[in-house]
Simulated assay, not measured.
Amino acid sequence: MWLFLTRRFRMWVLLTVLAPLATSVLRRLGLALQKRNGPTALSNGLLKAGDVGDRARVKLGGKPRRRGR
């Protein structure tokens, strides 16, 4: 089915659905690792990778994510 979608629509799906989902998963993994083992290079790297989505959202005119969690 993915083959029958237009290239522009596939790119839109990737950028609006899958990219934010992936960055939120990376952020949650980083937070879980920090709770379990304390700050490590891996958990800090996952958190930084998760923040890429937030920076892109703000740069493109969106609202920043709340930090209270």
Rank of each mutant, 00 (worst) to 15 (best):
V58N: 02
N44M: 06
K48T: 14
L31K: 00
R7C: 10
L33D: 03
L42M: 04
A41R: 05
M1Y: 08
L46S: 00
N44T: 11
G38E: 08
L18T: 01
L31E: 12
G30R: 01
W12H: 06
G53L: 03
A22S: 11
F9S: 10
G45D: 04
R7A: 15
A41C: 06
A19R: 00
A19L: 11
D51Y: 01
F4L: 11
W12V: 03
K48Y: 15
W12L: 11
L60Q: 09
P64Y: 10
S24K: 10
P39Q: 11
G53Q: 04
K59N: 11
N44L: 07
L5F: 12
G38H: 07
M11G: 11
P20W: 06
G50P: 04
L15I: 12
V13H: 00
G45K: 02
R28V: 05
R8C: 05
T40Y: 05
K48W: 15
L5R: 07
V25I: 14
G61N: 08
G68P: 01
P39M: 06
F4A: 15
G68T: 05
T40E: 09
A49R: 01
P20V: 02
R65C: 12
K35V: 05
L26Q: 08
R69P: 04
A49P: 02
G62C: 09
D51N: 14
W2N: 12
L29S: 08
L5Y: 11
W12I: 07
K35F: 07
S43N: 03
L14E: 10
R8P: 08
L47H: 01
K63E: 07
R66G: 14
W12Q: 11
R69A: 12
L3W: 02
N44C: 06
R28A: 11
L60Y: 13
K35P: 01
K35D: 15
M1G: 05
T40N: 05
P39C: 01
R27D: 13
A49H: 01
T16E: 02
G68S: 13
G45H: 00
K48F: 15
L14F: 04
G53R: 00
K63V: 07
L33H: 03
R65D: 15
K59E: 09
F9P: 00
R67I: 06
R27Q: 13
A32V: 08
S24Q: 13
W2E: 04
L42V: 07
